[in-house]
Amino acid sequence: MTRTALIPTLLGAGVIAAGAAFADPVEDTLILNEDIELTTWTEAPAAVEGALSEVISGWHFRGTETRAMQSDDFDNPGMIFVEDAMASWDTVEGEAGKSCASCHGDVEESMKGVRAVYPKWNEDAGEVRTLEMQVNACRTENMEAEPLKYTGTDMTSMVALISSVSRGLPVNVATDGPVAETWEAGKELYYTRTGQLELSCANCHEDNYGRMIRADHLSQGQINGFPVYRLKNTKLNSVHARFKGCVRDTRAETYKPGSPEFVALELYVASRGNGLSVEGPSIRN
């Protein structure tokens, strides 16, 4: 079936229902632990100039109870994993006899602000790194320990811990300088249609956010809330795991977590949320 014939067929099948009122993002304010107010809805950053007029966190597209669950660190089951990672932070691992704490000290002090600027350029390594890549680099080079599986629970819990201490700080990834080439590659991926369904990220998350796709609310696909505790699988999910699922859902051969494609895509998608507060670990469906 040609691409032009596919869209009317999908529309006819009621896949994308226009104007369903309760799919629109809900106006609400996210106050964490009755303490920090997070920015979840703000004007579009330079990275998406022309494409979006405002950027909205996925939090606004979820139901009342889900939004409430995220506003309290006790109610948020994602924090169980953060606590596990706090124990790992202090655990010595590897030949060098060090723990994360040996070099980095207190996680809340040393990691504050870190999540907000990742993915970013690593001068020594000469590459763009995601948090997962940096954690593994630290483990293998400094701790002489085994790397963690990229989308495994241990890694995602650690990323959630590092993310949690930056909550409330604005996402601010660089898009120029040494990362420019990677950013452009990510942008191209974002707008390229793939798969049997011939969908690009933009088709849903830029052109149709706020609408229903069958029984699901389409969000802008922001990643400021990652890692995400999904109610569907009751565990933390990382960015690349979600990308892998999204690409698979277009019925395309999907990329591997940690692949250059996903690193580039993560940098680009993160930049689309510049200005939103770091929210992870968040709760979504």
């Binding site: 229903m212 796709i213 069958r214 029984a215 699901d216 569907k232 859902d249 979504r284």
Partner: peptide, 8 residues
């Protein structure tokens, strides 16, 4: 209770 949409 619904099922459907890209996220499942």
């Amino acid at each position: 209770v619904t099922i459907g949409g890209c996220g499942g």
